[in-house]
């Protein structure tokens, strides 16, 4: 069992190591993700929303619906743990 797991993990590892050479270097300013999408958000947040923290602006404004779902997820986790572990009494 342990040997099979090790073989599977090493196989996945070799595939991933093979893929590393196509990735941009660490801290590369010309990486595609940084050049297009990241720069777009950095340019747009100040005129669009006007707050200083870009991460909060994306989190609460551009991706507000996603964040609402996120809060519902953690609320659901709290309810699930209460339903699983709390017995007797009310929720």
């Amino acid at each position: 069992m342990k040997v099979k797991a090790l073989i599977a993990v090493l196989f996945i590892g070799i595939i991933l190591f093979w893929a590393v050479e196509d990735m941009p270097a660490f801290g590369d300013p010309d990486a595609p993700a940084t050049q297009y999408t990241g720069q777009l958000y950095v340019d747009a947040v100040l005129p669009d929303i006007g707050i200083d923290n870009i991460v909060t602006a994306i989190l609460a404004s551009y991706r507000g619906f996603d964040t609402l779902g996120e809060v519902v997820v953690i609320f659901t986790a709290g309810i699930s743990v209460a339903l699983l572990l709390r017995r007797g009494g009310r929720l």
Partner: peptide, 15 residues
């Protein structure tokens, strides 16, 4: 939600 989870996991399920 965090405090609720902590209460349930630490409290042996008592009410």
């Amino acid at each position: 939600a965090m405090v609720s989870i902590i209460y349930d996991i630490s409290g042996n399920g008592e009410e």
